[in-house]
Amino acid sequence: MTTHHLDTKLLHIGSAPFDPETGTAPVNLPSMRTSTVRFENLAALERVFAKRAAGERAISYGRSGMDTHRALEEVFMQLEGGTYCVLAPSGMAAINIAFLGILKTGDHVLVCDGVYGPVRNLDRALLKGLGISVTYFAAQDDLDALITPETKMIYVESPGSLLFEMLDLPAMAAVAKRHGVLLATDNTWGSGYIYRPLALGADISVVAGTKYVAGHSDVMLGAVVAKDESVAARLHSAQYAMGNSISADDAWLALRGVKTMAVRMPQHAINALKVCAFFDAQPYVAKIFNPAWHKDAGYALWQRDCTGANGMLSVELKCSPDAAKAYVDALTLFGIGFSWGGYESLVQWVDPGTLAAHTYWKHSPNALLRFHIGLEDIDDLIDDLKQAANYLPRT
């Protein structure tokens, strides 16, 4: 049997089958929109329910998706190296499935303090009311000492999405397995293409397909991927009970977007490292956060565990957060926005309050700006950064 490279698989997943009568087919599956699934007869209906009873993802109702959705699930399984995937209407919805599929009242979860910010809101708004307790920890903390008999999951994001702190996932996985605890991680940064947590020992990988999988800033999408059948069954049960579903059109857009992932992500990474080199030479820059940058604290872990990088980086400026606002406003090619992973360049002025809980930040009084370096001409982007520097205080 021929084993193809991941790049080849991503191009061919979702290819439309040939019409048996005409012998023709479009290149891609169409967007299959439906609420109702019709059955030819009761025997066909019974076959579907028999497959479902056996654990197969048989199509029975629009909410569970059609062929377009199945193809996208296969994309995420190939990217992440998993055997089961559930789709969600956003990355945050996928995080909800991971938490509520595993945890119940009385359980305890350890969450890395550099995790995606809205997870803390999930804790405040939902988990506390359900009687699920959360302890936040720093990467250097002794996890063995923090695990209690009630601890059921460790949840992390690696690299983190503000400071891009690399975590030692294999070491954390070893601790989790020693205590019979599941390790779940937000892998939106790597999206399975440049970083594969399941291969490093994690049990669950969560991805916001909104970002690099879709790649065009026009889709809201999440996915949860697992390898173990018992874990997969719990995730499926939670997703089905919560009624999560994504539109067929969004699934189709993501399938279209992932076809160019193999060329987009390396180019984002090339551009980002050129911007890092530019910032490294500027007197107004205190620190650069990008695990693929050779001066980053996580560079050794990145070299060991990752196969590439992307367009993300953050920069600590030698000025106050308020003083950095004029710089952000002066940029012309960088849109101001919270997302990333699309073709365009973005900048985010990071609220100091957001950083307060991040041990990795070291409580600096300086401004932090997060950049997504897009696919524009790199000289144009650097020229834009140069002119905006005129609006910074002189150092």
Rank of each mutant, 00 (worst) to 15 (best):
A262H: 14
G82F: 01
A272H: 04
Q239D: 08
A281F: 00
T210Y: 05
R196V: 15
E344V: 05
D249I: 13
V350G: 02
L200M: 14
T83E: 14
H363M: 06
A208C: 08
A326K: 08
P159K: 02
P149G: 01
D379A: 15
D296R: 01
G117T: 10
V328A: 07
V219F: 00
E21G: 00
A326Y: 02
N310T: 12
V75P: 01
L42I: 05
M261N: 01
I382S: 08
A233K: 14
R370Y: 01
S35A: 13
T105D: 12
K295V: 04
D19I: 07
N96P: 02
L182F: 10
D141M: 10
D380F: 04
W189F: 14
E73C: 08
A297R: 04
H12V: 00
P20M: 10
A43T: 15
Y391Q: 14
A238K: 09
A44N: 11
I13W: 10
A357C: 11
A174Q: 14
C85W: 02
H108V: 06
I102M: 11
N390G: 03
G341T: 09
S217I: 00
G298I: 08
W293K: 05
G82S: 04
T188F: 09
V219Q: 02
A176N: 11
N390C: 03
V175C: 12
Y116H: 14
S15G: 08
A251C: 12
V156P: 01
D322A: 13
E316V: 09
D228V: 04
G215P: 02
P17Y: 07
V315R: 06
M172D: 00
D123F: 10
L110E: 07
V109F: 08
E73P: 05
R370P: 01
L333G: 00
V350S: 04
A214E: 13
L103C: 10
T22N: 07
M66A: 10
P321L: 03
G91F: 03
D250Y: 14
L6M: 11
L273S: 01
M77V: 02
N96K: 11
H236V: 06
A251M: 03
A125V: 05
G23T: 06
L167I: 10
R256L: 03
G131A: 05
P149W: 09
A58H: 05
L253S: 06
T2F: 15
A226P: 01
C112I: 07
H372W: 15
L42T: 09
D19C: 11
